[in-house]
């Protein structure tokens, strides 16, 4: 028991230490099968998945708005996926996420040179245009917003999601 307690306490301290040190969670590599993992990992929770890229002009405008949205809606899981072609740039990606206030969300970066296959797993009709936002309801219904999302639409959706719980 004591050991168990110590382990739990230790884990708490580890998490607290990580938070204190400001260690941002690593950018996770997005590979074959990752999409199904994201869906499983957030099943039953309202989740906003945002696809973007460091060279995309409209993305640069939208990302800070999304950072504010994530901050204002802790009840919504926010996941970002940098979907630029590889060579993707982890440093530039992390820097833009940090500036947008998205350091602590679950952040992925495309990590397979065969991007057609990655995109096909997510949505066979998606041809790579970014930004793109998928709103996943508690019941798994996916609503896709192509292009920059209107924050009012996100507010409306999140309001519906949080009200039904």
């Amino acid at each position: 028991m004591k050991r168990g307690f110590a382990a739990i306490l230790g884990l708490g301290i580890l998490i607290a230490s990580a938070a204190t040190l400001g260690a941002a969670p690593a950018l996770k590599p997005f590979e074959r099968g990752t999409w199904q993992g994201v869906l499983r990992g957030h099943a039953g929770r309202p989740t906003l998945v945002h696809f973007w890229g460091v060279t995309c002009g409209p993305c640069k405008v939208e990302l800070p708005l999304l950072g504010q949205f994530a901050k204002d809606h802790p009840g919504i899981d926010v996941v970002t996926i940098s979907a630029d072609l590889v060579p993707n740039l982890p440093a530039a990606t992390q820097s833009m996420l940090d500036k947008a206030g998205l350091s602590s969300t679950e952040n992925f970066i495309f990590n397979d040179g065969f991007v057609e296959r990655l995109r096909f797993e997510i949505d066979p009709a998606w041809q790579g245009d970014i930004p793109r936002t998928m709103l996943i309801s508690r019941d798994g219904t996916i609503t896709t917003i192509e292009g920059s999302a209107e924050m009012a639409d996100l507010e409306k959706w999140s309001g519906q999601q949080l009200a039904t719980h």
Partner: peptide
Amino acid sequence: AMVRNGLLGIAALALLQGAALAQMH
């Protein structure tokens, strides 16, 4: 001990992060 492990863990995490990013190339 856990604090030390925790710090080591963070260091390890940082290394892993670096390794994961390096793997991306």
